[in-house]
Simulated scan of single mutants.
Amino acid sequence: MDAHEPDARALLSELIALDTVGGGEGAAASVASGVLEHSGLRVHMADWEPGRGQLVATTPEPADSPPLTFTGHLDTVPATARDWHSDPWRAEIDGDRLVGRGASDMKSGVAAFLVALRRHRARPHRCRGVQVVLTAGEETGAEGAAGLPADLVRTGGWLIVGEPTANRLVPAHKGALWLRLRAHGVPAHGSAPEAGRNAVVALARVAAALHDTADWPAQDGFGAVTANVGTMSGGTQVNVVPDAAELLLDLRTVPAHAAEPLRARVRAIAGPEIEVADLVNLPPVSTPPDAPVVTAVREVLRAAGLDDQPSAPARFFTDASILAERLDAAGTVVLGPGEPEQCHVVDEWCSLSRLDQAVDLYDRLLDSWCSPSPNLG
Rank of each mutant, 00 (worst) to 15 (best):
A3C: 12
E5T: 15
P6Y: 03
L12V: 00
E14H: 15
V21P: 15
G24D: 11
A28Y: 09
A29V: 04
S30Y: 11
A32M: 12
S33E: 15
S33F: 04
S39A: 15
G40C: 06
G40A: 10
G40D: 11
H44F: 09
M45V: 10
W48K: 02
R52Y: 08
T59C: 04
T59L: 11
A63M: 05
D64F: 05
P66C: 04
P67R: 04
L68I: 01
L68C: 09
T69I: 00
T71M: 02
L74V: 09
L74P: 05
A79G: 07
W84I: 12
A91G: 10
D94P: 15
A103V: 14
S104V: 12
K107A: 07
R119Q: 15
P124F: 13
C127Y: 12
R128D: 12
V130A: 14
V133H: 03
E143L: 13
L148F: 01
R154V: 00
V161M: 01
E163I: 00
P164E: 05
T165W: 00
R168Q: 13
R168I: 03
L169W: 08
A172Y: 03
K174N: 02
K174H: 01
L177R: 02
H184S: 11
V186S: 08
H189P: 09
G190H: 02
G190R: 01
P193M: 07
E194W: 10
A207G: 15
A208G: 12
A209S: 14
P217C: 10
D220H: 14
A224P: 09
G230R: 00
G234Y: 02
V238W: 11
V238H: 15
V240M: 14
V241N: 08
L247I: 12
R252D: 02
V254G: 07
V254Q: 12
E260W: 05
P272M: 07
D278G: 04
D278Q: 01
L279A: 06
V294T: 07
L301I: 13
A303C: 08
P313F: 08
L335H: 10
L335K: 03
P337T: 10
L355E: 02
L365A: 00
P372N: 02
G377C: 11
